[in-house]
Design a protein around this nucleic acid. Structure first.
Lengths: 365, 365
DNA sequence: GTGAAAGCGCTAACAG
DNA sequence: CTGTTAGCGCTTTCAC
């Protein structure tokens, strides 16, 4: 009754072996590509396999070998361009190495992250690529490692974990961006992020924290006083962020330039500026992180900090796989890639504005 | 030597059973939540499990039950906003139902799609959600079904497959968009897509084909002649698309309005228009499919056809899971959701332009 | 209620 | 080179 055709029940190695007239061990060896097998036997097995449309059962294989050839990916949100690019690169790199990818979103919620890791562990992924929400609550990651499931960190650093980490040099990137604004005589420069506002410094995800540090350092280097109000944190709440920005832009001391920590923040800012009828770059200059495709198509095109996230994700995946395969067993390493400032024209000289105004008045417009 | 601590080897049900002083069958019953178990036994098992930090091995479970509690998702490209949203919704819906998601990209390449399906099948996903690249080469999908792996179609229809399908009413959406342009006196309306240009009608993915049909019908209804040159197909090649658009915009009979079949196409168009210094909506009107977040933030905000892709993806996932669980065993059904035209201001009256020009000349500007 | 035992499909020694 | 034989960790009859 078994395998009497193509009806619902996939053929097993035993079926193939029977059809080929060999033992299932032999069939397994040729189909699995390990161990020896005579040329003719080999052929017979392949033929039989093709005839029955045999598909190896990776589950059984994993069961027997103890390794599933899959890696788990834990990020905040696939819809976020940055992570989408990362996942794409991870997925490509993984399948090029014969690994599958199983996905989990956390929405920056530590409980969801815990769940996600638990599920992935239950599915016996061989390793994890994680962009952790918290740099404090990391017990589940330690637990994963204890259970023999290694992980690498992507985009965010958590020193206590002592794990291979792949990130941007955020300090430097922010420093460079702010310095370029300072170089055009901007002095009231705001930093805008979606990150949570409540907590202490240490509760911020490392990337944001480092960007803030870079921002501060650049201002400090230029001898510009740091104004706390110019650091705007939205707390993952777009409406809230928009409100804060509106208030800031209406205040007497409106910033002349903004640094947005990602493209979705830039979008909020763009909307607010349009509401208030403030033009870029004449009245307000803007730089944002992430070279989203739309940033080059809008008017004016946006000056951005381009992050090599695909390279980062690829490197992370290759590193994880190398470790899984026993190569690369050294101590934890940190790979820091440099971001690139792409000047497109959303930044102008801070004085242009007042010059224009004076000019207009003279003309009597 | 086994399980002497938290060292690399995860505890099994047998370990828990031993620690609880019961048989592994009993431990399995309480941990697996099936079959009977005395209240006290139950407690002892739970305690032991917690003490050992036991994590069920989903692989072994799948092996024994024959079902893996995972679904495979096959789409063209995660980086594409539309699919990213879909995947997010699928992933959320799946995990709400205790299912995992494993991912595969095809890049609109039929060979990659075949590979992807093969890998997913090998991993014994219980079912598939597919956005097929071709409506012709679908043997691998039929094969999957024959092997007992059911699938639902997302976004694209393939009637011969006779599978549950979840898509937008693309004909109607395009018809409505074009009609709204016609209503503002546009008569030279171009349709722009990334889809391949070479093949016959039938080789186009269904969504694009239906949008073209809707476009044609709307023009026909308005008594406007259809000009083949106004249907621009890029063939997944952005540069090529840009070239064609540039040529079209420079021609004497430049279209007064464009319908872009997705937001990435709109991006290309936006860039070309900026190059040629054509302003929206005064000189050119534009509607694009997909309510990408940036479309509302740019100047002017773009009028879009908003597709309920998240709802679609959620419905697809729920339907698949229902079928997997034996509920919903009826014949294949097609779920067509309606898109919504969101008017934001990138469309103006076709005559405005000439009127403005005449005015300017009168003023002598 | 609980335990013993037989698989799920494959790999991995180990003989021959 | 090829066949035999144990498992991998869990579920699932079937007795007790």
């Amino acid at each position: 009754m078994r395998d009497n055709g193509r009806s619902g029940v996939p053929p097993t190695i035993a079926d193939v072996a029977r059809a080929a007239g060999v033992s299932s061990a032999t069939a397994a060896r040729v189909l699995g590509g390990y161990g020896y097998a005579g040329a003719e036997t080999r052929q017979r097995v392949f033929d039989a396999a093709k005839r029955l449309a045999y598909q190896p059962n990776q589950l059984a294989r994993s069961m027997a070998t103890g390794r599933s050839k899959t890696i788990g990916v834990v990020v905040a949100d696939i819809e976020n361009l940055y992570f989408a690019r990362a996942i794409r690169a991870i997925s490509d790199t993984a399948s090029a190495n014969g690994f599958g990818v199983v996905l989990a979103n956390t929405d920056e919620d530590i409980e969801l992250e815990r769940d996600a890791v638990r599920v992935l562990l239950a599915n016996r992924v061989d390793g994890l690529i994680v962009s952790p929400t918290s740099s404090i609550e990391v017990d589940h990651l330690i637990g994963a490692r204890d259970m023999g499931c290694p992980f690498v960190l992507l985009d965010r650093r958590v020193p206590v974990l002592n794990a291979d980490t792949f990130a941007i040099d955020n300090f430097r990137a922010a420093h460079e961006a702010v310095a370029s604004l300072v170089g055009r005589d901007h002095r009231r420069i705001a930093l805008v992020s979606n990150a949570p506002s409540h907590g202490e410094q240490q509760y911020l995800i490392s990337s944001v924290r480092e960007r803030i540090d870079g921002y501060r350092a650049a201002l400090h280097d230029a001898g510009i006083r740091i104004v706390p109000k110019l650091i705007v944190l939205g707390g993952w709440d777009t409406e809230n962020l928009a409100r804060q920005l509106r208030r800031l832009c209406r205040s007497a001391n409106r910033p002349t330039a903004f640094l947005a920590t990602d493209s979705s923040v830039a979008l909020v800012l763009l909307k607010v500026l349009r509401e208030l009828d403030l033009s870029i770059p004449d009245e307000v200059s803007l730089i944002c992180f992430d070279d989203a495709d739309w940033t080059a198509a809008v008017t004016p095109p946006l000056t951005v900090v381009s992050q090599p996230i695909r390279d980062l994700a690829k490197a992370a995946t290759e590193d994880l796989i190398a470790r899984l395969q026993g190569e690369a067993t050294g101590p934890a390493e940190e790979t820091l890639l440099q971001a690139t400032l792409i000047d497109r024209g959303s930044v102008s000289h801070a004085l242009v504005k007042s010059r224009i105004e004076r000019q207009s008045q003279r003309v009597g417009n």
